[in-house]
Write a protein that binds this DNA or RNA. Structure first.
Lengths: 370, 370
DNA sequence: GAGTTTTGGGTAAACATTTTCTAAAAACTC
DNA sequence: GAGTTTTTAGAAAATGTTTACCCAAAACTC
């Protein structure tokens, strides 16, 4: 069945190519190409013959040859901070599903907050000829942005990107969710609320922290300097940050964290003390990773929907890549955030009579169970 | 600076190609190709001139053209079960680092235990012309194995693969780690030990369960039918499985889980009861994901090193791909497992006088802290 | 029914490389 | 110093597609 003159060199037994199909269907390769690409000017009978031949020889178009001649690889780059932070796999999953549904492949890379690594990653993406890149690191260094921007393909940034023609930005509305978190805690009676931020060299970390400060101000609550601790979005650092807070003379009664991994570290730090969550200290996370509801206690957190982010990212990229995409003019893509109340937040100790408290907690538990 | 006749059609501004470099260095494209690929038959002076030109025009070889003509894409496929299960991102990370260090790109896909999805994934990988595929799903359905095996490229299976010339298998020694876990529990005084398995249609799940049964037998401990519950490696199912065990008339004093996610579900189920971990029930996981040490309490678990797995997978693939790799004859690649004791296991209640127990636990905690 | 338009499919030129073949020049050999 | 071998670099073929261009035949038009 194999083509005669092929084989030759010691090379992988190539699978069927367009010529094999053409020969079998007794048409030219141009016709095969047209049929496979769904170009409608082909006679129905011929098309049927071609499809039959495609089936018979098990033809899969060679993407490399396709990319070479068409100038489009149908690969989307996806850059994340840390693939091992559970938020990102969830995002990757959604992104990939959507991209594949649109006929794209995804090339994933994580920066691990390392400049050299990021540069190499970008170079690899350029070399593989990606059609566009989504930078979902929530902040990236200027030098690397330049490296990316210099090439002409479409870019999507989560949360912070330069204002340039082929750049689209997913505008995450942090204010919303963080305000809800602060108000939720304040409503429970908390006055001393601390915040553990992300690494402040990331713009998003600053944005989230400022959103916290703003919401506190709105309610007339003070934020002492020592109540804002810099973390780095890792569990390890979350733990250390909480230990810093625990060393203060006047402890906060609640802690809001810049992401869920930090919150997990905080829970861990508190587990090593006599303080209980939420009885003694309430904890709020950010992201709502799937794990959040499996923490002990299940984590109250601000949800930033992966699905929503992924949908916006893929569409925004397509808007940049595909010549006549309906939303090609849209530069800013809004993303909502909102509080999800679980069991890591409660009244601060002593704010209500014990009986009352017991009752309310039970009631909330019940509500939660549904 | 741009080549004259180019531009033409409405196409992305192409970056410099081999002709640009050749013109600038006043050599032929063959020479440029040779220099860039490190073929040593080029005069040192010429090579220097070529590298200079490469720098100046910012030449990046086009991987698609390369792949097209050489028949090798330098892409490795990596198939995992669920990218959202934290074990896999850790594996992906290690795998990617190693692959990139060897000049390969990685194409990742997760099956989500879905046959249609898996088939589509394999098709995509074939079409992109991967040089080899590592199937790290710890069990895959026969039909899909056939689909993969039919093509001639190298394959690596974790834990269960067909015995074929171009297939290499990472043989995970489950017996080892699981025996350590059972012995650890037995040494603490546990006699009633339950096991929550993975989905039994996966061969690895059966293997792990059988390893558990065998280790129990060796110690003369009975394993009632009801003490072996089928899970599916998810937190949700882990929780449900534990609830099943809690409904039994005679409760086990310890539970070993087929992976860490299941163990997290178990911890969660127990948190909703009056039973404490490890005081009332000890829990052991499997995998040792990074999160395990951040659980409350930190999880005793059997470590299956991602790094070791990734190293073996990449090397085994290279052994299949690269003509003269030193280990090209090696078909089985052993992977060790071993118990990591943390704080989710302890003496069963009542097995020792309270004072004694208190003391030992404190001692262990201390040992742990280091 | 001859001229004109439409339809549909084939030919061949790209695309950016690697690699084989060839040939010139340089370095030996006796 | 003529013949032989080695070294080195260029010319050109090949890789599997898409697509612009062209031309034959069919379908209209009057």
């Amino acid at each position: 069945m194999r083509k005669a003159g092929k084989a030759g060199k010691h090379r992988r037994a190539a699978s069927a190519n367009i010529h094999d199909v053409a020969r079998r269907a007794r048409v030219s390769i141009a016709t095969v190409s047209r049929v496979v690409n769904g170009i409608s000017t082909v006679d129905a009978d011929l098309a049927k013959r071609v499809w039959k031949a495609v089936e018979e020889v098990g033809y899969l178009p060679n993407t490399q040859a396709r990319a070479l001649v068409s100038g489009r690889s149908r690969i989307l780059g996806l850059i994340v901070s840390e693939i091992t932070n559970p938020f990102f796999p969830e995002l990757v999953q959604e992104f990939e599903n959507l991209a594949v549904a649109q006929g794209y492949e995804v090339m994933i890379g994580s920066t691990n907050y390392d400049a050299a690594r990021t540069e190499a990653l970008i170079r690899r993406m350029l070399q593989r000829g990606v059609d566009g890149v989504a930078v979902m690191t929530f902040g990236i260094e200027e030098a690397q942005v330049q490296q990316l921007v210099a090439h002409e393909f479409p870019l999507v940034f989560a949360d912070a990107g330069p204002d340039l023609p082929n750049v689209r930005v997913l505008e995450v509305n942090y204010g919303e969710g963080i305000r809800e978190a602060v108000q939720h805690l304040a409503a429970l009676g908390h006055r001393r609320i601390a915040f553990i931020s992300g690494p402040l060299r990331m713009r998003t970390a600053v944005t989230r922290r400022d959103a916290f400060r703003k919401s506190m101000n709105e309610l007339g609550l003070a934020v002492p300097q020592a109540y804002v601790v810099e973390g780095d979005h890792s569990m390890e650092r979350g733990k250390i940050s909480m230990e810093k807070l625990l060393a203060l003379a006047e402890l906060p009664t609640a802690v809001i964290c810049s992401n869920d991994m930090t919150a997990i570290g905080v829970l861990h730090a508190l587990d090593e003390t006599a303080y209980k969550v939420p009885t003694d200290i309430s904890v709020v996370g950010f992201d709502d990773i799937r794990l959040a509801q499996f923490m002990l206690p299940p984590l109250t957190t601000v949800r930033m929907s992966c699905k929503e982010l992924a949908e916006a990212a893929v569409e925004a990229l397509r808007a940049g890549i595909e010549p006549k995409h309906p939303q090609s003019a849209q530069k800013e893509w809004p993303i909502a955030t909102r509080l999800v109340v679980r069991r890591s937040t409660d009244f601060p100790r002593g704010s209500l009579p014990a009986v009352e408290k017991q009752k309310s907690r039970a009631a909330r538990r019940e509500a939660q169970a549904k």
